[in-house]
């Protein structure tokens, strides 16, 4: 597992970034999800993969008995998953709305805010 998980994390990062660079809306969403997953997995793996007990201290002991898994990365991971869930939910709704309004599935069609002379009428952003 110590070798396999880092390789998996790297693969997820690569796949996520590759899909984000795609022009297709759906692939953008999938890419963002994979990239978020990769980040979460990275947090999990970097906290060391310790097989053994939880860090719960038994009744009479002063410290947890070794070996125990570090609980901090898991707590971070939990928070990061929830935050990522919120951001991804927003991104999905946003992209659905963009698809409805623009009637296109291609990110390259959305280049008007980058251009100097060709622009939306001022009224549009009132």
């Amino acid at each position: 597992m110590d070798i396999l998980l880092p390789v998996l994390v790297g693969f997820l990062f690569a796949a996520g970034l590759y899909l984000i660079l795609h022009r297709h809306f759906f692939k953008l969403i999938i890419g963002m999800m994979l990239f978020g997953l990769a980040t979460n997995m990275f947090l999990f793996v970097i906290g060391r993969l310790t097989r053994g007990n939880t860090a719960i201290i038994a009744g009479t002991d002063q410290v947890a008995s070794e070996p125990f898994a570090d609980p901090v990365p898991q707590a971070l991971l939990l928070t990061a998953i929830v935050i990522g869930f919120g951001v991804q939910a927003f991104a999905i709704v946003l992209i659905k709305r963009v698809y409805q309004v623009f009637g296109t599935n291609d990110l390259d069609d959305l280049d008007k805010t980058d251009r100097i002379h060709e622009k939306y009428p001022d009224k549009a952003s009132e």
């Binding site: 309004v101 623009f102 959305l110 622009k119 939306y120 549009a124 952003s125």
Partner: peptide, 11 residues
């Protein structure tokens, strides 16, 4: 949700 806003917010 006006057009320019949607385009800007995707980026």
């Amino acid at each position: 949700g006006s057009k320019p806003q949607l385009e800007g917010s995707i980026k």
